[in-house]
Amino acid sequence: MEAERVLKAAGAIQVVKKRDRKVEAAIRPDRIRTVASKLCSHGARFIIIAAADSGLDIDLIYHFDLDGLVVAVKTRVPKESPEIDSIKDIVPGAEWAEREASDLCGVRFRGGTNEPLVLPKEGALETPPLTRAFRVLPAEVAPVAESIASVGATAPLTSLMERRRQEAGLEAKAPMVYATEKGTKELTELIKQASFTERGGFDPERKKLRGVYK
């Protein structure tokens, strides 16, 4: 199919045919200009951008019409830095949709107008009205949750307690998952496989939960 070929050629991660007249594609945010250009060069007509708060991120779904087929191009920007390139120079009609997403969900379109469209210019709201609080876990419990997800214990073993254990004739470290490199890797993989990285917003590299700290 033409749309699938175009989308894949433009770097779509996944293309799924939802029904007879609809195709959905997932792309990285940095591919939006390429995808929009390719679709438009094949005669696609821009319809709308739907922006939605998915908890940790803002989902942006760009809708195009290609010969009667709805092409929904989905991408996602993190709430920490909700930015994406504007496509208004490729599709002038996208400007209003970008301004609406900017107003309601706080997305900043690089190279875009970013002027209020549906909200008044004066007395801007502190947070965009269609976004929820970022936090998925209360900040107070975050350190314990982060410790469980990164070392497998409610709190890491302190060097003082390691010494106390040795003085008492115990192994310096408890026989827990963090005691070996293999165990730590297994824990990291398990946290990823259980989708705690996606649903809970745990960043295994920083060993922190997203959105808890400023």
């Binding site: 209360p138 314990v144 469980i148 497998g152 165990g183 496989q193 705690f196 649903r199």
Partner: peptide
């Protein structure tokens, strides 16, 4: 002795974390 284990996880924090993740750690 059970070796290579993780926190059970904590019954209160476990509920905050995410049911599937907490249950996965317990099951392991």
């Amino acid at each position: 002795e059970v070796e290579n284990y993780t926190c059970c996880p904590d019954p209160i924090i476990g509920r905050f974390i995410d049911r599937k993740t907490a249950l996965t750690l317990s099951a392991r």
